[in-house]
């Protein structure tokens, strides 16, 4: 039992370290994720702006139609 317990303890320590590592990794990935999201949004709004005129017309006409 003693042996089993110390094995469990070591294992727990190991998993804890591993979790720490994963958490770090997740954090980094999350940062990257946010960055990519931001870039995507920027790119999107650029394309939107270029199509601006036609898009706006569509929206306003549909809105007035509903009301």
């Amino acid at each position: 039992m003693e042996r089993l317990n110390s094995k469990l303890f070591v294992e727990n320590c190991y998993i804890m370290k591993e979790n720490e590592r994963l958490r770090k990794k997740a954090e980094l990935l999350n940062q990257e994720n946010q960055q990519l999201l931001f870039q995507l949004k920027q790119k999107l709004s650029k394309t939107k702006n270029s199509n601006n005129g036609s898009n706006n017309d569509n929206k306003s006409s549909s809105a007035s139609g509903q009301s």
């Binding site: 979790n19 990794k25 990935l29 994720n33």
Partner: peptide
């Protein structure tokens, strides 16, 4: 801890996939 490990692994793989 195992459960947490599991969750974290899933999260990492999901983020990798998303990115």
């Amino acid at each position: 801890l195992m459960e947490e490990n599991d969750r974290l692994q899933k999260q990492v793989s999901q983020l990798v996939c998303e990115n």
